[in-house]
Every structure is written in structure tokens, then in C-alpha cells.
Amino acid sequence: MARFIALILIAGSTLLAACNTIAGAGEDISKGGQAIHNSAEEAK
């Protein structure tokens, strides 16, 4: 049972750290999409 609790705590910590990474990647993708949108608007 102690191993299971330790595993849950480790998995939870990993997921919290991954959220920050995913949020940063999402911001980068959003900025890239905005740049493409702006280029398309300028080309009209």
C-alpha cells in the first residue's frame, strides 16, 4: 500500500511539472498560429 501511495505522489508531481511544459508549448503554438494569420491577412 505504501508503494502505491508513493507511486501516486510521484505521478502527481510529474503531471504538475508537465502542465507547465504543455502550457508553454501551447503558447508557442498559439503565437505561431497568430503569425500565420497575420501573414494571410497582409497577403489579401
Rank of each mutant, 00 (worst) to 15 (best):
M1N: 11
M1A: 13
A2E: 15
A2P: 10
A2R: 10
A2L: 14
A2V: 11
R3N: 15
F4H: 14
F4G: 09
F4W: 03
I5T: 14
A6S: 10
A6P: 08
A6E: 11
L7V: 05
L7A: 08
L7N: 13
I8S: 14
I8C: 09
L9I: 12
L9E: 15
L9G: 00
I10G: 08
I10R: 14
I10C: 10
I10A: 13
A11W: 08
A11F: 07
A11Q: 11
A11R: 01
G12S: 06
G12L: 06
S13D: 05
S13G: 12
L15G: 08
L15A: 09
L16M: 08
L16T: 01
L16H: 05
L16K: 07
A17K: 06
A17W: 04
A17H: 02
A17I: 06
A18C: 08
A18M: 09
C19A: 12
C19R: 07
C19P: 00
C19M: 04
N20W: 10
N20R: 02
N20I: 04
N20H: 12
T21N: 00
T21A: 00
I22G: 05
I22C: 02
I22F: 00
A23F: 07
A23I: 02
A23C: 06
A23V: 01
A23W: 02
G24Y: 00
G24W: 00
G24R: 02
G24L: 00
G24M: 02
G24C: 01
A25T: 04
A25P: 03
A25C: 03
A25M: 05
A25F: 00
G26L: 04
G26R: 06
G26K: 01
E27Q: 10
E27W: 03
D28F: 03
D28K: 00
D28R: 08
D28C: 01
I29A: 06
I29T: 07
S30K: 01
S30Q: 11
S30H: 02
S30P: 13
K31V: 01
K31L: 05
G32M: 06
G32D: 14
G32C: 01
G32K: 04
G32A: 03
G32H: 06
G32I: 09
G32T: 08
G33L: 07
G33N: 13
G33C: 06
G33K: 05
Q34K: 06
Q34E: 14
Q34I: 03
Q34D: 14
Q34S: 10
Q34T: 07
Q34G: 02
Q34R: 01
A35F: 01
A35L: 04
I36M: 13
I36N: 11
I36P: 14
H37D: 13
H37M: 03
H37G: 05
H37S: 14
H37F: 05
N38K: 12
N38R: 04
N38H: 04
N38I: 03
S39I: 10
S39T: 08
A40S: 13
A40P: 05
A40Q: 05
A40M: 11
A40D: 06
E41W: 04
E41N: 13
E41C: 04
A43V: 14
A43Y: 12
A43S: 12
A43M: 15
K44W: 09
K44G: 15
